[in-house]
Write a protein that binds this DNA or RNA. Structure first.
Lengths: 176, 176
DNA sequence: GAACGCATGTAAATCGTTACATGATTCA
DNA sequence: TGAATCATGTAACGATTTACATGCGTTC
């Protein structure tokens, strides 16, 4: 069972959000706005675009505009919009939570129901994380004398708890 | 230029911290204490252990103890300790910062100079991140009317700023 | 019109995961 | 003794990165 792919969905998300885009445009947006969370090289992007055209997820935009250059512009197809919708609606799990920011990035409309759905699932997941991490800290460092001999471990565990707790608070503040 | 490897250093870190360990022991510690930050499959671990024995970074521990099972125990060698030391001392950059938690995990002693060194570099890096993210937010959403049409983007950018700011505060609290 | 830049494209090498395999130990 | 379990080991595939390649357009 191959690892689930990310790139095709980001491509769909960008095209759905921005309309017509070239590969170059996508690379540019990846770098400026998405590199904080995810990166991709152009040697992955271009073959993927071809594959997605074959799959009818996207199509080449016959722009009357700028065809001076060898730029290829793409637009999303109906099938692609459904694929994107299904991806956004997938349940959030420990395994795929690293993609949640990317999913949110693809949602332009503040009132989209899927947005609240994602935030709520994310909240539940990270609340569990906090519980788990706190239990782990209590187990390992409940006796504070254990901190001395494993200070680095203690540090990152403490930090993880703070980080997750902050995230939980933020998520709650964004949920209706 | 191949991507820098992580696994060998974690192996060295664990052996340096715990003394004698088998592959199974490492897998176990990966799962319980490190899975929050990093994962590895056993099919990666075992060949890597063999490679590191060949390189004299570690060696098989001739335990008189439990040799009933086919368990193979390892200990770190002097060369491995130097390799580990060099890794911990590498400058922290945007590229390798995702490994910082793993590095901290390998440092048992609260008073180790390398600990403060890492925390300070990490602080500088994330302070820069905050500056960059805030500038980006000002540029994109300084005009609040822009939020409506790109709400997801606004959300994750805002969250990133809070997350990084919290991290900066935490780092400062841990620095002498 | 020759050289360079740039969007796109291709190849090779590496990394990492899943699935499967081995051989020893335990236990019924 | 034979089945099951377990630590270790191997194979195959997909994903990702680096390096290199193509070919159009601009510019000097």
């Amino acid at each position: 069972m191959p690892r689930p792919r990310v790139l095709p969905y980001i491509i769909l998300g960008l095209l759905n959000k921005n309309g017509t885009m070239s590969g170059k445009d996508m690379i540019s947006e990846f770098k400026t706005d998405i590199s904080e969370f995810w990166t991709v090289s152009h040697s992955q992007l271009y073959p993927e675009l071809q594959r997605m055209v074959d799959e009818k997820q996207i199509k080449v935009a016959e722009d009357v505009e700028v065809k001076d250059r060898k730029v290829i512009n793409y637009v999303i197809e109906a099938k692609g919009q459904e694929t994107l919708k299904r991806w956004l609606a997938e349940p959030i799990t420990l395994k795929n939570d690293e993609l949640t920011s990317l999913k949110l990035y693809c949602i332009s409309d503040q009132r989209a129901p899927i947005l609240q759905q994602i935030l709520k699932q994310c909240l539940a997941l990270h609340q569990q994380k906090v519980v788990h991490l706190k239990a782990r800290k209590e187990l390992l460092f409940g006796d504070e004398s254990a901190i001395k001999g494993n200070y680095g471990h203690y540090l990152i565990l403490s930090r993880a708890i703070e980080r997750e707790s902050d995230y939980v608070n933020w998520l709650q503040s964004k949920i209706n």
